[in-house]
Design a protein around this nucleic acid. Structure first.
Lengths: 231, 231
DNA sequence: CGTCATATTGATGGGCATCAATATATGTGG
DNA sequence: CCACATATATTGATGCCCATCAATATGACG
């Protein structure tokens, strides 16, 4: 056992509305995990032990197709939870999860203790359902993104969603992932990612410096993100 | 008011485990809709009135992109429910739904009366959550399908999932949708669909007759559905 | 400093969309 | 019931996007 989980849970949207007593019950059934990039959190097919909340860092959810290709379903970041559905139905995990940053801090909330709470406290039930609804919306968005948007538009959206700081030339953003992982998250190949960044540099839309990118012409990038045909 | 809803609800998986009293409470807050293909059930952005169960026929859920293109999220058939998440969070509907067959029979379950039940009866809460989990899984599957599978594989899967009857030549299946709608459901264009069917006819994998298709070589079709590169 | 993963760049090709033209089906009013 | 109007289907031509294969370049790290 180490640092208390309770204050950490309090910061997560899904638990924000719960009273102190409920929260400590949940905390009692949870444990903290400290991970490095690449470390596995859960594997597809495993019986469900609990669900997870990302406190710091990030992780990705993905499935492996029969031929070994990895399909990223979603990236999860601080404040988000995942595998809630598996807990409530007590099934097996339907996908894999690994940390994508170092360090990444995760809280695992044990299934049994949580389920008792779910039955007893309607606030917990509501919070859980709301959380699952969010997941549904995210996946719906993902389906749209992967089908109607071009690779360039997906990358542009990703960059524009990143935290940025201003500089003399424009917005500066840091890629939080290795490029090969970023490519996988966007559902494209590393080669395509490389070529897109190269093209944008030639067009003087961005200036690249390894994991650091300067957005010179954010209007152009927004236009690409909107897609509807161009660049 | 017309025929009673209660016996209909009983046949739906989501309500199967509930006792008679609960069921009639739910039924009291519901109403039946009889629709023809193309008739709208709900529109994106509308405030949530309730959720829906398909009793007979079928419907599709879709979003419209800014440029007017339609992206089918999922087809729903008899026995399935949709828009549960919207009810539980009392938000607006995140997508559109229209009937795709004539006739299609839908039961609408009113939001307020159902929410009271959700708070009071933990079986209802559990059933609801299980239903949402199923949606999550379906969407996860959809993401995979749209990204890792070719257009041919998606069509093959669709055909193989259809109810079929045997004949001298092979399985006979009826397409339950107009081909343009089928194409939209698969995330392809009508032209591509037409060409795929044509190619399969040339290869003597299927024989086509308008909306009726005879699968001559189901092994070949299964191989296409597995994808991993061929045809 | 060598080794291995990651990144870039080039060449090639396939899958599928798009545009365009015709054929077929569906439905409506006279 | 037919003729016409309109939606749907088929087929062809073309081209783009992006994956794949292949070869180097660059970086990370013991």
């Amino acid at each position: 056992m180490d640092a208390p989980i309770e204050p950490v849970l309090r910061t997560l949207p899904i638990f924000a509305a719960l009273d102190a007593a409920t929260l400590s019950t949940i905390a009692a059934g949870g444990r903290r995990l400290r991970l490095s990039a690449g470390e596995s959190i859960l594997r597809e097919g495993e019986p469900c032990r609990g669900f997870f909340a990302v406190v710091a860092g990030g992780a990705k959810l993905f499935r492996l197709s029969p031929d070994g290709r990895e399909q990223v379903l979603q990236r999860v970041r601080a404040g988000q939870t995942f595998a809630e559905a598996a807990v409530l139905t007590m099934k097996r995990y339907p996908a894999n999860a690994v940390a994508t940053e170092t360090p990444t801090e995760i809280v695992e909330i044990g299934a049994e203790s949580f389920l008792r709470l779910f039955d007893g406290d309607r606030h917990v039930a509501k919070a859980m359902v709301a959380s699952m609804s969010t997941w549904l919306l995210r996946l719906v968005g993902r389906v749209e993104e992967l089908t109607v948007l071009s690779a360039g538009a997906r990358l542009a959206r990703f960059v524009l969603d990143l935290p940025s700081s201003n500089s003399a030339d424009g917005l500066v953003v840091e890629l939080p992932l290795a490029k090969k992982d970023l490519a996988a998250s966007l559902g494209i190949t590393p080669e395509t990612l490389s070529r897109l960044l190269r093209k944008w540099q030639d067009l003087e839309i961005v200036r690249g410096d390894g994991a650091s990118i300067v957005v010179l012409d954010s209007d152009a990038l927004v236009a690409i993100a909107e897609d509807v045909g161009a660049v």
